[in-house]
Every structure is written in C-alpha cells, then in structure tokens.
Amino acid sequence: MQESILGTNDSWDLVIEPKKNVYSLNLKSIWNYRDLLMLFVRRDFVSVFKQTILGPLWFVIQPLFTTLIYTIVFGNLANLATDGIPQPVFYLSGIILWNYFSECLMKISDTFMVNQALFGKVYFPRMVVPLSIVISTFLKFGVQLLLFICVYLYFFFNGAVAPNVYILLLPLLVVNMAGLGLALGLIVSSLTTKYKDLKFLIQFGVQLAMYASPIVYPLSVVPEKYKLLLVLNPATGVIETFRFALFKAGEFNLFAFGYSFLVMIFLLFVGIIFFNKNEKSFIDTV
C-alpha cells in the first residue's frame, strides 16, 4: 500500500497498489501515529498490573531473585570467576541488560500472532507495535536499572567498585541491546506468520543464547578456542563494554563494541525489510 501524493490535476491523497517500497521505514506515517504509540505503551504498562497487589514491584523482584539464584549456583556451587567483581552486581548487570534484549525479542516476535485480530480489522503502521514494545520494555528496564544503581551504590561506597569515563557509553549500549532485540524480533515475527515452527525455536533459543553470551561468566575465563565464537555474538561486545565501564574489569575493545553496533544496524535493516514485506500480506497467510 503506497502512500503518495500525485502532483497531477487528478490528485489523490492515498493510492493503494500491490507494490511498495519495502526499504523505507516510513517514519512520517509512524510519526502521525505517535499518539497511538504512546497509548500502546501505556496500555502495556498499565494493564499488566491491574488487579495485582505489588504492581510494578514485580519488575524488581524477578531480577533480584534471579541474581540470588545465580550467585548461589554459578558463583558458589560452580565457582565461576567474575573478574574480581562482587558477584551480586556482576550477575545483576548481566541480567537486566539481557532481560531487556530477550523481552524485546520475545514480545516483538509475537507481534503478528498476538495482534492478528486487530491487524485484520484496521490499518495503522504496523511498526508502531514493535516500537511500543521497545519503549514499554524500556520502562521496565528503567525500573530495574534503578534497582541496579542502588545495589551498585552500596558496593561503591564500600569501595568495591568504581565507574570510569566509559560510562558515558551507557545510553549507546542500551540502544544497541534494544536494537538487537527489535531487529531479531522483526525478523522472527515476519517469518512466524508463515512458518510457525519458529515460535518454538525462539522460546528455548533465547534461553540457550544467554549461555552463549557472557552473562553468568566474564569473557576472560573463556578458553581461547571458543573465544572467537563468543566474540562473534553481537551481545558480547555490549555486555563486556557495559561491565568495563562500571567495574573497569577486563579491557575496552573498540573493535568488539563497533562490531556489535554494525551488526545491530545490519540486522535492523534486514528486519525492517522483512517486516514491511510481511505487514502487507500477513493477514492472508497467518
């Protein structure tokens, strides 16, 4: 469906045609629907906690307990090294970043399935839904980040950790993680409308992928022969940089950081093409 203003005397506001440029993000029409975007964010954020007692506290409870379990299992039972970083902050830093990524990915990959009824009835730029998920998940991430800062400050005042100037990269790191989740989510969501097998793959795939990223262990303990594989994982550069900025553990690797960013941009490009192609026809194939 192409939106174009024809400059002839026969000027139409909207022309619906089979072909369309799938390479454009069509930011203008998304901008026109910015109110919808924010209402979706609000809906996702508000509706989850209707009729709950603890409400948004659940955002905090989950990473807290996961950190506790990781500290016991990976830190004390398996005795995995943490580059000299206090175990709670080490795990928590990995968990909140990974959670943001994996939640974006999981929720976005369901975009077409969950919104089938809605998409079948009314048109709006479909990209609004994934974007609203990125934002509403960011709010959750923000709450978890506050928790992390509290824990971090505790160790900071004990002199156990100290940030450095690379902390200025933090916004970029968050954008990178969000971008990766968005990009992969777009690709998976587009493919699942036709090949529903992917839904099952992605469910445990994300869990397994966490172990292929330096979340519960630092990159430095990985044997040389596996290191290359791990570095190819775009999430590695982000997490390692994040920890370097916060704890000055390991060293900052500009190559790994840049690589993650480029992969994210590339995947995002592919994801947008897939998604644009799919939003036109998915209602016929889903």
């Binding site: 506001d13 022309v15 619906i16 045609e17 089979p18 079948g120 009835k121 009314v122 048109y123």
Partner: peptide
C-alpha cells in the same frame, strides 16, 4: 479499502481520509 491487506492487481485511489469500521 481499509488497507488491511493489499490488492494483487489494480489500484485504489482515495481522496481524503478513509476510516473503516469492520468491527
């Protein structure tokens, strides 16, 4: 007409804002 799906052939030209009430 409501752009939920696209035509295989042909074109639909619209002047002004179109809203559909399929539900």
């Amino acid at each position: 007409l409501s752009q939920v799906t696209q035509p295989s052939n042909g074109s639909i030209k619209i002047k002004g804002r179109i809203a559909s009430l399929l539900e």
